[in-house]
Write a protein that binds this DNA or RNA. Structure first.
Lengths: 268, 268
DNA sequence: CGAACTTTTGACAAGCATCAACACGTGTGG
DNA sequence: CCACACGTGTTGATGCTTGTCAAAAGTTCG
């Protein structure tokens, strides 16, 4: 399908503008990038590991996820993406895909030629900077996932994922209350948290029994944010959203430094 | 200490040029950035979580690591850095530190004011692009760590870390043979792999007994690269190094897609 | 209505954590 | 120069968290 409207990319632009200031010319240039739209269904591949990448993708609607398969055949989900996110600045620049991206649900994806992205980044430094910022914020999410999987127990890991998605959807203006659609099976939740399906099932049951969430079909309702974010050890700072949000969603306890014997506490 | 020489930043420049083409003017501008050098000792903090960041750091000598402390007091190491690496493009742009960076060994760090980095990125788009590329490559490493911690067993995780450091040191021209200094205690290896000190100790013993490595003091010698990278399920593609290296260091088996029932294999 | 997913359950096993103690090396101060 | 403290590495006993396997119940969709 060929691009018809100039406003198709608007949700992605809006996302960039949450973190950066752009001029009218920048906006026009961004919305004017060429693209193709593809309608995709659940589990379709947007990009496969080892593909040579020639475009950059914008998730116009629906959810998607990145994943890698390790040697023993196990899959690890690396991130979950919500509508409006730019998926592939990485691949467009690095040339070869080091992981796959698939749809979680059906939705539409805009494919922008990589050169168009390169050009706009040079011609409009503010856009280049904004895109760079997006990749930095995404990096921060990867780091939190490392900590989540490496150092939290199963219950916290699952709760943390649910908190993250809730806050990101909220920040994108895609939900209002405490209920949201999360089109992930328990197997996918397991692959995202480094657990097994069976164990995720038990953890979800525990969260339900304790009244922290309810889940019917693929919709999550958070029954008690404070308790859930507490169990999750969730602190939204790592999402680098602006201002007010962070206050509302922080779990009560702040992060502290763990001082170990031998740590030199000086700054230089 | 104040900057005296124009060539202090050369190692970082060399690193950027491994992935990007820069003009003579770009190079001069990069080397001409203002900076302060600080001599730091092991476990000194370069940056602490929640600091407001006003500079970007270049690790001139010595090793460093990023880490986060989670709610129960456990520490997760997020990455390990070798001499010559630019540590902090992230923090310089996001403004507030979402994790800490500490020295692993003693060494020198150059602190470049964040504005100088911003300005050079705009004035010299090629440098901006090169730095962006670095952050993308680093992102890819974070993703591999998520997969490593989430989906590999303890033995593979430890072996994988040892392989990664070896290849990165090799690529930076810092080692030649199969032996290298890795100034990490077993506790730090544990925090990097999401394990406990005791278990890391046992895994290292296993690697030693099987003749894959030897370790004396803080030096690692790889006795059998093929076997080690096999155990580690190590494939250096994710490091996005150029060309030849990848061939030499790949473990024998390629990565495949794991097809699950319901996966739609079409590309669109 | 049947086939293919997905969720749930139970019994059991295993990998890794926990705890505690000891060994070893190194630097330091009495 | 030795004694000592301290960080680090090593070991063994034990137990818990999470994984594995298998089967049944529920759900979705053609």
């Amino acid at each position: 399908m060929l691009a018809l409207s100039k406003n198709i990319l608007a949700p992605a632009l809006k996302k960039l503008e949450q973190r950066s200031v752009l001029s009218e010319a920048d906006r026009a240039a961004f919305l004017g990038m060429p693209f193709n739209i593809k309608s995709m269904s659940a589990s379709n591949y947007i990009i496969r590991e080892q593909d040579l990448t020639k475009h950059c993708c914008v998730l116009l609607s629906g959810f998607a996820f990145r994943s890698k398969i390790v040697g023993n055949g196990a899959r690890q989900i690396l991130s979950v993406h919500i509508p409006g996110e730019v998926l592939d600045l990485q691949h467009a620049f690095l040339g070869i895909a080091d992981h796959s991206i698939q749809m979680l649900s059906s939705g539409n994806v805009a494919f922008v030629p990589a050169e168009a992205v390169h050009e706009i980044a040079v011609a409009h430094p503010a856009i280049g900077r904004a895109m760079w910022l997006e990749t930095l914020a995404e990096s921060s999410i990867f780091r939190e996932w490392i900590a989540n999987i490496g150092r939290r127990n199963a219950l916290s890991r699952v709760a943390h994922l649910l908190c993250e998605i809730a806050v990101r959807l909220h920040s994108a203006g895609l939900i209002d209350g405490t209920r949201y659609e999360l089109p992930m099976t328990q197997e996918q939740l397991a692959d995202a948290t480094g657990l097994t399906t069976v164990h995720v099932n038990r953890m979800l049951q525990k969260l339900r029994c304790d009244g922290l969430i309810t889940r019917d079909k693929r919709a999550i309702t958070i029954g008690n944010w404070k308790a859930l974010s507490g169990v999750a050890d969730f602190n939204p700072d790592y999402l680098h959203l602006n201002g007010a949000l962070s206050q509302n969603f922080a779990s009560s306890e702040g992060r502290l430094y763990r001082v170990r014997p031998g740590d030199d506490l000086s700054l230089a």
